[in-house]
Write a protein that binds this DNA or RNA. Structure first.
Lengths: 224, 224
DNA sequence: TATTTATGATAGTAATACTATTATTTAAAA
DNA sequence: TTTTAAATAATAGTATTACTATCATAAATA
């Protein structure tokens, strides 16, 4: 028997559920590949269709436009991360250890999870670093928010915020600190690899240094 | 006599220097307006030309494409901020006061600076919040970096990093903390206004709360 | 077996992101 | 002042993007 993790997705992100067909799964799989390879700006439904071996119209039957497809992919990742955090910290009782574990998960390029067939999480993590903020840095952010497109991200922030409060119930900014951890983990990773002088990690380009930096930042604030 | 602050720009960002003609100045002025109003994705040279009252080809004589124009505008802002920080902290000897002042400048919507004729800095600040990261979150980031497109941003980070070291010469991550302050100031502002549950500033939507959060974060880390 | 449903193949449109050409105006040099 | 150069305006044209629409066919389901 093959175990599969299913992330429940917001149905208004798609026209036809991509999990329910081979073509749908290929749309997700090749989108991740192409966005990673060429970047979101250069990514088009035509190129995607060619890569899959279908037609543009075929892709449009699943997703209205590439923005919704990006939001779908990113939401999926947040959902998967939420699951990972729950799973990997389920036996950790000490909140400080738990938060450290969470920071490590957020700042580390994960290995491909065999439980999610057509999705390569390590590539997805890279996409999140370079393209993640483009999901919400748009003029339609409020409409998208009303449609609950960012619910998985918010839930993750809420989970992390909860763990922060477990560490120190008097800390005043659990949500802001949670979103800061997530975003800074990605930003410092991007800077380290592309604009290294904006970081102090230039030499080794090692993700562990980002984790150390974040741990220092976070625990100084909440243990003060 | 009218005093004018001139920010020296990287000449490879443009084909013809926009500071040197009325049309050029209008390109900058209306770009800022249009990008702010409709967002960078919906911004085109055709719409810009119409707004100015010139033709598309006219705009292309100044800028190769809209990406370079965005980088130009954003670089200008970093250069202007660097000047502001130098100017507004020149008599502050206490490094902690200086860093607090810098955090306030970075996290506050500035008033329109009358010394820079055709540029409205308060709108530029808004553009930086929503569009700033799109300047570097591209596949060409390394080439752009080689051309020194991000020099003003790096210099600003370096300046802020220097002030951090003045506060505590043993602090290990001055550059990362500097880039974190700048980016988090913008991100938390965007979240506060658009995705408030990712922050703890939902009620009043006041920038002062972001400053308080950043001060807490920064000084906990460096004074530890 | 009939019929719904998904896919494939093809066409077409408006907008975007440019490049090129020529005419006209403006400003600087002779 | 005239000549010449440089900047701009007006127009046209191309390839690509971001879609929508139509119709035929294959596969799944009733």
């Amino acid at each position: 028997m093959k175990l599969e993790v299913q992330i429940k997705m917001n149905a208004s992100l798609y026209l036809r559920d991509p999990e329910q067909s081979e073509l749908g799964k290929n749309i997700i799989k090749f989108s991740i590949e192409l966005i990673h390879k060429h970047g979101f700006e250069a990514f088009t439904f035509k190129k995607l269709a060619e890569a899959i071996g279908t037609t543009e119209a075929g892709v449009y039957r699943y997703f209205e436009n590439k923005h919704k497809l990006l939001v779908y992919i990113i939401s999926w990742y947040w959902g998967w991360l939420e699951f990972q955090i729950g799973y990997q910290t389920k036996n950790v009782t000490n909140p400080v250890s738990k938060l450290k574990k969470v920071i490590t998960i957020l700042a580390t390029t994960v290995e491909d999870d065999i439980m999610t067939g057509h999705v390569d999480e390590s590539i997805l993590h890279q996409i999140l670093i370079s393209e993640g903020s483009k999901a919400y840095l748009t003029k339609q952010v409020s409409q998208d928010n009303k449609q609950e497109y960012f619910k998985p991200y918010k839930e993750l922030c809420n989970t992390v915020g909860g763990i922060i409060l477990e560490c120190n119930s008097k800390y005043k900014y659990p949500h802001s600190l949670a979103s800061t951890i997530i975003e800074v983990a990605h930003l410092q990773n991007f800077f380290m690899n592309n604009l290294p002088s904006l970081t102090d990690f230039s030499k080794s380009k090692n993700e562990d240094q980002i984790i150390t930096f974040l741990n220092d930042l976070v625990f100084s604030s909440i243990e003060k």
